[in-house]
Structure formats: structure tokens, C-alpha cells
Design a protein around this nucleic acid. Structure first.
Lengths: 228, 228
DNA sequence: CCGAATCCGCAGTGATACTG
DNA sequence: CAGTATCACTGCGGATTCGG
């Protein structure tokens, strides 16, 4: 069943044999945010066939990258979570995401943004250097979307939903188009954001999460695909 | 030719739409070492169908990741090389390769090692911290294989073939099995290597290129713990 | 020799329906 | 909720062929 390998004894090759198949890294990106159930994953990966999700989950579990957990009492069902090996992929996902962000053009008409996408973008944009000696908590609202980010001691904690503690600054965006991360940053730079809390932390946010080197609209990467 | 996208406006997603298809990152890995011709690539990617290589090269060129060059005078023909966008993938390839290296088991019977594989491994293993203030040149020989590595000012220059200047230490391995990078490191640690030059640089080599930091999951800066 | 294009069988994928 | 089952389709693997 397994797709054939590449016939080379090489780290990159092995990595691609394990997580290089279609949808695999996107599944892992969503699991990087938090453990998720089968249907959560289906929802976060628009268009993935259910059988393919099941197949990938099985393969990734066999590879030791993720694990199945019987869900805790409150919700019954199964939960998928990263193993330490899977969590070790975080730098790879962040680095690849940073590269891809530089060639994000305008959104295609059928492209969407999920909470996991925004959290991943926040983590990829995080500049640990700029956050040294800083302790702060932000909350981002845009439509249905709520995401939090907290930095302390040069580290980042971020995830879907409201922050655990009281945020120092709540940023609420009212956008026409997609609440994509570049769009949020752009809006924040233009002041198109409602602020609640310590307003000085807006500039701080832009310094730490501001994509200083990314995403020029109009940089066309060729055609990633007019679907359908 | 409908390249199917993933329907998300996301950096990682876009990256995978551009370089996520089978063989693409391996082609780019080989081009990362040096510009190569069509047949060089065929040789370095055992088992790739010729039509698939041609298709990938066309797609990657359209995406602006690589470019076709009319070869210089000496050999006529075409040469493929990375654009700046393609070269920007180097951290991603190195990071993914480091992850994959941690799950390299024993070589499968049909797996081989190419020069580009070893050079990529050398670059992935390079510890810039350990190389600070160090200036040295090594040359590695193992069977047909010749690779050089030179560090100066905390940076690394490495490639296929002998070094440009006279190497400070030449290491010649006589291995039974595959000259894979882990096997070379293992052999070097056991002293199973012929040395020619400054023998003290063997220990230095192992400190700088010795894969000491393999598989340390969980201790990543900026990585939140598992939340629930 | 280099740089592909062409043809074909099949595995991996996509969409939908269905089940414990 | 958490998957299987079915089936059509397309991208891939393998071989051969073809034009500079």
C-alpha cells in the first residue's frame, strides 16, 4: 500500500516518504495547534476526502508521528495528537510556511481561512528576538474567528479561542474580505482595527508579529491553480 | 494541467502547492548543491520517470523557483538553476532533512547515496555555533564519492568534488556498506578513516558536523506545550 | 549524447454513499 | 461521531521513441 520510496538513503528523502504525501503536512499543521478529532480535521481541511483522511491518519500513526487517544470523558470519541516525533516537525512547518507566505498572492475566489491557518501564521510570524523581555497577551477577533497569543520570556503560546488569562489588548477586525493573516496585519498597520485594552501594545504586536519580510501582493508565483 | 490547490489561503498551503508534489523537493535539493543539467538530475534521482522530471522542471520554472539557462560555452545544452526564490527554500530543506535524519533507520537494500545527498547532509549537520572563529577545509573521500566542506567566519561552503584550495584534512573512508552520512560519522568516531593532513581537525570535524543534536523534541523555543 | 515527448497499466486520489 | 465502501479519474512509474 505504501507509496514507493525514493530509493535514497537521505534525511530529506525519508521525511518526504513519511510526511510528503498529499494532505499529510496540512493534517499535522492542524494537530500542531491542538489535538483534534476526526470531524474537526475534516472541517479544517476543506475538500479532503474522508477515506483519504482516514488513510493518512493511519499511516501517520504507523509512522509514529501521531497517536490515537481515546477522548476524555466530556466528549466521547477519538482524538488525534502529535507524538514527540510529530511535534519535532514544528520548525519544518514554520519554515516552509514562511517561504510560502512570501509567495501568497491575492486569495483565489474559493480559498478560505481556518482558525488553524491563522494560528500557524501567528507562530510563523513570531519574532523571538523582538519579543525578548516582553510579557503580553493579545486576543484577535475577526468574524467567527478568535485567536490568542501570549508571549513571556521570549517564548510564544498561542491557540484558537480566547486567552486563558485576561488579554492586555483585544483587537477586533471588521474586514470585507478574507481574514487572512496578511490582511489582518495590513489592517492593523492602517489602524483599521478596534482596540480594547493597552493601545500601545498594537505597535508592539506589529513589531513582534508584523511579517517584516513577507508577502508582497502582486508577486505572482505562477498559477497555483484555477480550480474547477 | 489543473494543479489542484488545497482551498486555503495559507503560507504552508501555498508552499505545498508549489513544491509539494512528488520529486519536487528532491529536484530542488540537487539544484541547491549546484546548477545541473537534465541528465545530471536524472542520474541523481534514481527511478524518476523522464516525463515526470520534465513536467516538474516546467512547473517549477513557471512558479519562478528555478530557471533554465543556456549552458555556457564548454558544454552546450541546458542548465537548470535556482532563482532567489528557490534558494530561499534552503532553510526548509535543511530543517526537513534534519527531521528526516532522526528517523533514518538502516538503509533499505535498494537505497543508494548520491553526492548531492551527502552534501545536503553535511549542510544540515553543520553547527554554526560550534564553528565560530574557525577556519578549515576538509575533503571527504568514500569510493567514487568526493565532497568538500570549508568553514570560515561561522559560515559553510560545501559541494561535490575536491575543495578549491588545499584541504587541511583529507578523510578517506573504506566502507563495506553504503557511504551514508551517518555511516561516515560513525566510522569517523571509531577512527575507521584514513587521514592526510592536520589530524587534530578530525575531532573538530566531529564537533562541527557530528550530528550531536539529533532528536531533541520538546525543547524548541517558541513552541507551546500541548494544550487541551 | 542531451532533452525531452508519447503511450500504457496502475496506484493514489476525489466525490459520494453508506454503516456501526 | 468516526470512519468504510464504491467507483471514476488522474497522476505516476516504466518503457520506448524522437528530434537536435
Amino acid at each position: 500500500m505504501t507509496r514507493r520510496g525514493f530509493g535514497q538513503y537521505c534525511g530529506l528523502t525519508r521525511a518526504l516518504e513519511v510526511v510528503g504525501e498529499r494532505w499529510a503536512l496540512l493534517i499535522l499543521r492542524d494537530l500542531m495547534v491542538q489535538p483534534r478529532r476526526y470531524t474537526d480535521l475534516l472541517e479544517g481541511l476543506p475538500g479532503i476526502p474522508t477515506n483519504l483522511l482516514a488513510t493518512r491518519l493511519r499511516e501517520l500513526e504507523e509512522s509514529g508521528v501521531i497517536e490515537r487517544r481515546i477522548a476524555p470523558a466530556s466528549h466521547r470519541g477519538v482524538v488525534y495528537a502529535l507524538t514527540p516525533i510529530g511535534r519535532a516537525l514544528e520548525p519544518s512547518i514554520r519554515t516552509l510556511g514562511q517561504w510560502g507566505t512570501t509567495l501568497l498572492g491575492d486569495p483565489q475566489p474559493d480559498e478560505i481561512v481556518t482558525p488553524a491557518v491563522v494560528v500557524t501564521a501567528v507562530r510563523a510570524a513570531f519574532d523571538a528576538q523582538a519579543a525578548r523581555g516582553l510579557t503580553a497577551t493579545w486576543e484577535i477577533h475577526a468574524g467567527e474567528l478568535t485567536v490568542h497569543a501570549e508571549t513571556v520570556g521570549g517564548k510564544l503560546e498561542s491557540g484558537v479561542g480566547p486567552a486563558g488569562n485576561t488579554p492586555d489588548l483585544v483587537m477586533t477586525f471588521r474586514l470585507d474580505g478574507l481574514p487572512s493573516y496578511p490582511a489582518l496585519i495590513q489592517a492593523a498597520k492602517c489602524g483599521l482595527v478596534e482596540l480594547d485594552g493597552d493601545r500601545k501594545l498594537l505597535d508592539t504586536f506589529l513589531r513582534v508579529f508584523g511579517l517584516t519580510q513577507a508577502a508582497q501582493p502582486g508577486a505572482k508565483p505562477g498559477t497555483p491553480g484555477p480550480n474547477e
